[in-house]
Structures are given as structure tokens and as C-alpha cells.
């Protein structure tokens, strides 16, 4: 009855967290802090890095690209994920097991392997273009890589599981009796969907959407391989500034902006879903 008061061992247990704490302080907090300070100290003290970043059309386009792609990816994954999660929640365990297997397989397959596949599939002479031409939808191969279309397709592929899984968790918990009640109250299927199922699933949709959006904002690999240098996203900008241009001040400033946006959205998610157990 009182066993939460009686750990059977004296002492707070904080000591056991110490190794992980030290590791994170040494290899996470210190490096990130050092990096962020460079944004206001290099090349000389001041806020000029931020002024440049937020004041020039070139860099604003990078921000624009980042938000555009992240927003589109979030929207598309939500549209696909909702019906799939819904089906997963109500179908037979066997079918759900197969679908989950496919989802987990794609999720755990090496990221570069998946991205490589899309690079080949989407190139001008690739399977997708040739199939579209064979069917007669297009005459000329479409430009699907080295631009934001390719990035979006590649990222939707990567993010889908992260939307489906939380949504599935929420929909599965909905009591079918609630929807039976809606039907008995005279609601048509469309009304029941719009007025009952969607509102009940909303926390899952919002939670998944925030997660996908945040992950997309800082994504590096897919944009770097499927997007061109002319359609840069924020993570690429950071890497380019640091690695190619050795401009640590600018790279750090961009990293700081990405960090702040990420943390704000994360805090929002925690606050929105703190009491709901999502």
C-alpha cells in the first residue's frame, strides 16, 4: 500500500543517474553551448550573423524552403496516415500485423539505402518517370530530383511511420460504443466521422503532426541527397557554412535559430498533451 514510499534502499537514487548526466553534460550541453556562443562572437562580437541571416533574401529563401517542405510533408503524411491508422485500429490482428511489419521494416531500413532507392527511382530515366510516360500521363520526363519535389517525396516516406504510430495509439483507445451511440443518435457516416471520430482523434493528429514537422525542420540527409544546392534547407545551410565555408559564426547562428524553433514546438507539444497521456 505504501510501497511507493519504501524503496527498500536508502538514498534518493540520484547517484544512479550520474553517469548519464556526466556524459550528457560533457558531450552534449558543453559542445552545444560552445557552438551557440560562437554565433555572437565570430567573426567579431555582436549580432551581425543574425542580421545577415534574417536580412538577406538568399537566407530567407532557405527558411522559406524549410517551412514549405516541412509543412507539405506534415500535411501529406497526415492525409495518408489517418485512414491507415484508422484501418489498423479496426482491422483483424493478422492484417494489422502485416501492415505493422511493413511500416516497421521501412522505418528500420537503413536511411541511406532508402534515400538511394528514391534517388534512382525518381531520376529522369528512373522507374517512376518511365512508368508515367508509359501510361501516357506525361510526354517528357519530369524533373523529380534535385528539387523540393524529390525532397518532399523522400521525406513523406521517412516520416509516415512517425505519424501513423501515435495516431493509431489514439484511435485504438476510442470506445466503439461512442460511435455506435452517434449512429443511434441519427448521425450519418460522414457526420459521425466529422463530428465524433475526427475530434476524438485530433490529439493524435496534432501530436503526430507536431512531431513530423519538428523532425522535418532539421532534417539533413534527404534534402542533401534529393534536393539540389539551389534549393537548400536549413540543416544543409548549417553544414555548408561550417564544412565548406568554415564560417562558424553563421553556422552557429543558423543552428541557434533551428534549436529555438525546435524547442518552442517541443514545449508546445508537451503543454498541449501533458494531461492527455499522449
Amino acid at each position: 500500500m505504501l510501497s511507493f514510499l519504501m524503496p527498500a534502499r536508502r538514498g534518493s537514487g540520484l547517484g544512479m543517474a550520474l553517469p548519464a548526466l556526466v556524459l550528457l553534460l560533457a558531450f552534449f550541453v558543453v559542445p552545444v553551448t560552445l557552438l551557440l556562443t560562437r554565433s555572437v562572437t565570430e567573426p567579431q562580437p555582436g549580432l551581425q550573423n543574425y542580421e545577415t541571416l534574417l536580412g538577406s533574401a538568399t537566407y530567407l529563401r532557405v527558411f522559406g524552403n524549410t517551412f514549405l517542405v516541412s509543412g507539405t510533408v506534415t500535411l501529406v503524411t497526415a492525409l495518408i496516415a489517418f485512414p491507415v491508422a484508422w484501418l489498423l485500429a479496426i482491422t483483424t490482428p493478422r492484417l494489422a500485423g502485416i501492415l505493422f511489419g511493413i511500416i516497421l521494416l521501412s522505418m528500420w531500413t537503413n536511411l541511406l539505402a532508402r534515400t538511394y532507392a528514391w534517388m534512382v527511382l525518381l531520376q529522369q530515366t528512373g522507374l517512376i518517370n518511365r512508368m508515367l510516360m508509359a501510361v501516357g500521363v506525361i510526354d517528357q520526363p519530369l524533373q523529380l530530383t534535385n528539387n523540393l519535389i524529390g525532397v518532399t517525396i523522400g521525406m513523406v516516406y521517412i516520416m509516415l511511420p512517425f505519424m501513423i504510430l501515435p495516431l493509431y495509439g489514439v484511435i485504438r483507445k476510442i470506445d466503439p460504443a461512442i460511435l455506435q451511440a452517434a449512429a443511434l443518435c441519427g448521425a450519418s457516416k460522414g457526420q459521425a466521422l466529422r463530428r465524433v471520430l475526427l475530434p476524438l482523434a485530433a490529439p493524435g493528429i496534432a501530436s503526430g503532426a507536431l512531431m513530423v514537422f519538428v523532425m522535418s525542420l532539421g532534417y539533413f540527409v534527404t534534402p542533401a541527397l534529393l534536393g539540389g544546392t539551389s534549393n537548400m534547407m536549413l540543416a544543409e545551410l548549417i553544414v555548408q557554412q561550417v564544412q565548406s565555408l568554415v564560417n562558424w559564426g553563421m553556422g552557429a547562428a543558423a543552428a541557434f535559430i533551428l534549436l529555438v524553433v525546435t524547442l518552442i514546438l517541443y514545449a508546445l507539444q508537451l503543454r498541449l498533451f501533458a494531461g492527455r497521456g499522449v
Binding site: A20, F28, P31, V214, L217, G218, F220, L258, T262, Y266
Partner: peptide, 24 residues
């Protein structure tokens, strides 16, 4: 708070951690 702190490396974009660790 400690739990949230332990999970932050999962939330932050890897690119930030990578650049920070690279410099460090």
C-alpha cells in the same frame, strides 16, 4: 526535468549535435 533533459538529444536535430560535437 531530468527525464526531459535525458530525452533532449532525441528531440534536437542531429545536425546541431553533429556540428557542435565536430567543433568540440
Amino acid at each position: 526535468v531530468l527525464r526531459a533533459f535525458f530525452l533532449t538529444p532525441m528531440i534536437l536535430p542531429v545536425v546541431i549535435i553533429a556540428v557542435a560535437l565536430y567543433a568540440f
